[in-house]
Design a binder for these strands. Structure first.
Lengths: 348, 348
DNA sequence: GGCCAGTCTGGAATCGTTTCCAGAACATTG
DNA sequence: CAATGTTCTGGAAACGATTCCAGACTGGCC
């Protein structure tokens, strides 16, 4: 590579060295079969010699494609998201896409401006657990969008089987003798929270159990700790938390108050973040294929972008974009209860 | 906002509606004082009416600036990094920059290609704990670069006061009566690992303690668990780990083998990731201002980009770029030992 | 009233690439 | 050998914004 140190080498430099026109360079590199083998070789040699790499910005301008995807999520501080992002990033790179990341700090009001700001530099969006209202998100969808951990028609989505997870968790608790349990709810704006609650209600009522719902808290350790006293005051023998962080906050506060887990109170989390296995007692929780969510999300988005009328919202009355082609697919990844040490038989 | 749904509104549309030329629209929006107040108002009204936002790609092409910064890091799965990235992201957004993220999966060979691939779409790089060789990184530096958690001349860097942290940790252990301790080293390619080891050696020898170094392991829980047996076999009463994940792996394996922590063996981590406080026993560890690292990194990078000869490497014999202006600043953020439950007096 | 300075504006060039179009070169066929 | 078709190539336009330059207009001043 002999490229001048500071100055970028352009297609014209290659053209000059190869003794052909810029158009031919472009063709030789983009679609080698459209030029004579001899020119192809000359161009490719020249390009290699100069260390030429096409300017993606200039290319974007004319093709309208950026080869970037935008990822918007509420909080990197929640270990759930980095795992998903990592999977997204890996899969995106494999497909030659780069990832533009925005953390909205759990603030719904930041989401729409953030999407708008990124819109021009990406070919599509992956919205992880978006907090804004359905209508707002639909209104801002000029680019293809895939939603993770939430369903918003008409976007394709990837969600976890929250109901299934809750069913497993509840029947586990039921088997241990628990009959009255509590749920510590996450953010009101979280679709996963609503979905988990829905599944939980169905599961408990199916088994004739009593469910006491405890207000919405931030999906953090602090949020869980804040709710712990309310839970302790309720006549329950077990508690399910919106997610692992909340569960950890609960356990921490229980232990600080001398409430034995699982001796006096069983605790179940959701997500199976790394730390769940490490705390004392290790947390019983519902595992989600986080990598799968990220990976499938990327695939869905790429399919959507490749689809014929690849705008964010299909135009009114568009031909049926079959879910098979990524049109408005709804993928559900399985969940699985991981029984660890934070749940046990009901006391007495 | 009356913009056509699918078609992007360009500067020409605004110009037409406002009855002025494109140049005037550009001036009115970029630098309102350079046009007559009346034109300014007409343009601004028209722009608002059409929902015009300048196309950043087109702008990049002519200005050469992208308003993106590239972040490269080894593993989002290590909770240390999401925290740093979150701070980076927040600070970048505040300065109107977007963040392009790449996770290299701890593979040095991925780093350079990743940087090269991103180079054209960013104005500068933030390399978090890069694993590649100094020379490779210098060779790939066409854009301004700031290095986090490592020092590579001539790049500005932000590092933690590893030596100071180790000194605190060692004197804590010394006060508890420990005299022979072990260090479980992280990746050989990690500068932080070498820096921590350096500080550790200095601190132990200053206090006349014996240090037994145990091979390089992956900076993960599994890595720590893998080293645990070696540690247990060594004649030590305490062990310092490269980072918290390794420490957690050690503790986990010790407990599995019935070795009491801190009863028989004290364990100290590094980083103070969220989970450190939650495990049982809670981990004594050295805290780093992770947010500060990210924030300062962004500030340094922005200063570097704004600097006169803002190429990656200053040209040979460049005028002294004072560290004050971000030239080749070396910022060190303080560390602090957090004493929790995984350390205690030496047995007997 | 004329001249100069200053303000404001429009047109054109530019960034680097892709793509359309038309023409050149060559081969094929009658 | 002419007519036709095919392959390959170069020039030019285009993407959308910024910026340079020169011209138009205004105002002030003598």
């Amino acid at each position: 590579m002999i490229g001048e140190p500071g100055v970028a080498v352009t297609i014209k430099d290659v053209a000059r060295l190869a003794g052909v026109s810029a158009s031919s360079v472009c063709r030789a590199l983009a679609d080698p079969d459209r030029v004579r083998p001899e020119t192809r070789d000359r161009v490719q040699t020249a390009a290699r010699q100069l260390g030429y790499h096409p300017n993606r910005v200039a290319r974007s301008l004319i093709t309208g494609r950026t080869a970037n995807i935008g990822v918007v999520l509420p909080d990197l501080g929640n270990p759930f998201f980095p795992t998903v992002v990592k999977a997204i990033q890996t899969q995106a790179r494999r497909r030659d896409y780069a990832v533009l990341l925005t953390d909205t700090d759990e603030d719904p009001a930041v989401e729409v401006p953030a999407i708008r700001a990124l819109a021009m530099q990406v070919d599509g969006f992956l919205l992880c657990s978006p907090r804004a209202a359905d209508d707002e998100l639909r209104a801002v969808a000029e680019k293809p969008m895939v939603v993770l951990n939430r369903r918003i028609s008409p976007f394709p989505s990837v969600t976890a089987d929250n109901s299934g997870g809750m069913r497993q968790a509840v029947s586990h608790l039921h088997a241990l003798g628990h009959r009255t349990i509590s749920y510590v709810a996450g953010p009101r704006t979280s679709w996963s929270n609503r979905d988990r609650l829905r599944g939980l209600r169905a599961a408990t009522s199916a088994l004739g159990m009593t469910l006491i719902e405890i207000g919405n808290v931030a999906p953090t350790v602090a949020g869980g700790a804040a709710a712990a006293d309310l839970v302790a005051a309720a006549p329950v023998t077990a508690v399910l938390a919106y997610n692992d962080l909340v569960a950890l906050g609960l356990v921490q506060r229980f232990q600080a108050r001398g409430i034995a887990v699982p001796g006096q109170l069983s605790v179940v989390g959701f997500d199976d973040i790394l730390v769940a296995a490490l705390v004392g007692p290790p947390l019983t929780t519902v595992a989600i294929g986080k990598e799968q969510i990220g990976r499938v999300g990327v695939d869905l988005l790429l399919a959507l972008m490749a689809a014929p009328g690849a705008a964010g919202l299909d135009r009114a009355g568009s031909e049926r974009a079959g879910p098979g082609r990524g049109g408005r697919a709804r993928r559900v990844v399985p969940t699985q209860l991981i029984v660890r040490g934070s749940t046990g038989p009901v006391a007495r």
